[in-house]
């Protein structure tokens, strides 16, 4: 089973231009990183895939499950770009609430919230109110919330923003384990250099179009000749965007 967007069109409001128009995309297995400049449509793609918004045209499916069904939503986990801390919730309560929203029983959600927080090394902060957590800690709570209900597809929007290198390493290890378990991961990031080597696939978007969608090797060869070894991913990304602007 795989996540598919078929000829989806979406715009915010009724008078703004379409962000995505007749957009089709199939999420490959493994870890796919999603690159693109601000306003490319990455977050909109993730929202459509997570069934947070409904396309004005087209459909979103996971296997034979339509995005309008509960079963679809159980299989999909989404971590948005901004996490809303609430003064009434501790870290564990936050993650448990998301688990409950995704269909877990209260008891299961409570247990799994602790496990999810352990995976992102937030066990000591599980009783701290989310409004008192640092920015990086809040992001990790968001990651834990995405992991709490064992989804088959993980959609992550800028998950590593605010994390230090050690936490990013930990996060990549978690992702690697999930991919090993057969979870499909679509990860939107601006952190090209860090994640390009770890990814199985790369999708580059600009202005609502896919410029490239393929394995990491196919992405990296786009870098111009003579690019310094440590900057190949950056070079490939920049070259794709420049070519895309000329189209």
């Amino acid at each position: 089973m795989t996540l598919v967007l078929s000829a989806c069109s979406y715009r915010y409001g009724r008078v703004r231009p379409y962000v995505l128009r007749a957009f089709s995309y199939e999420l490959p297995d493994g870890l796919t990183i999603l690159l693109g400049p601000n306003g490319a449509g990455k977050s909109t793609l993730l929202k459509l895939a997570a069934a947070v918004v409904v396309p004005q045209a087209g459909r979103v499916s996971y296997g034979n499950l339509s995005s309008r069904s509960k079963e679809f939503r159980r299989e999909i986990a989404w971590m948005p770009q901004s996490i809303t801390p609430l003064p009434s919730l501790t870290a564990r309560e936050y993650v448990a609430y998301v688990g409950w929203l995704k269909g877990l029983s209260r008891t299961d959600a409570w247990e799994r919230a602790q496990q999810a927080l352990r995976r992102v090394e937030l066990t000591e902060q599980e009783g701290v109110r989310t409004t008192q957590l640092s920015g990086g800690q809040i992001r990790r709570v968001g990651v834990a919330a995405a992991l709490v209900h064992d989804a088959r597809v993980l959609l992550l929007d800028e998950p590593t923003a605010g994390m230090d290198p050690r936490q990013r390493r930990l996060f990549r290890d978690v992702l690697a384990k999930l991919v090993e378990d057969g979870v499909q991961v679509l990860l939107s990031t601006h952190d090209v250099a860090d994640l390009a080597e770890e990814a199985d696939h790369v999708t580059v978007m600009d202005r609502g179009r896919v410029l490239l969608s393929g394995d990491t090797g196919a992405f990296l060869v786009e870098a111009p000749e003579g690019t310094a070894p440590g900057r190949v991913a950056e070079g490939a990304y920049t070259a794709l965007l420049e070519r895309g602007e000329q189209v």
Partner: peptide
């Protein structure tokens, strides 16, 4: 106002 907009909209519970 005290809600988690994204998880609530994408969840299966009728909040």
């Amino acid at each position: 106002d005290a809600r988690l907009p994204a998880p609530e909209v994408s969840g299966v519970r009728h909040v």
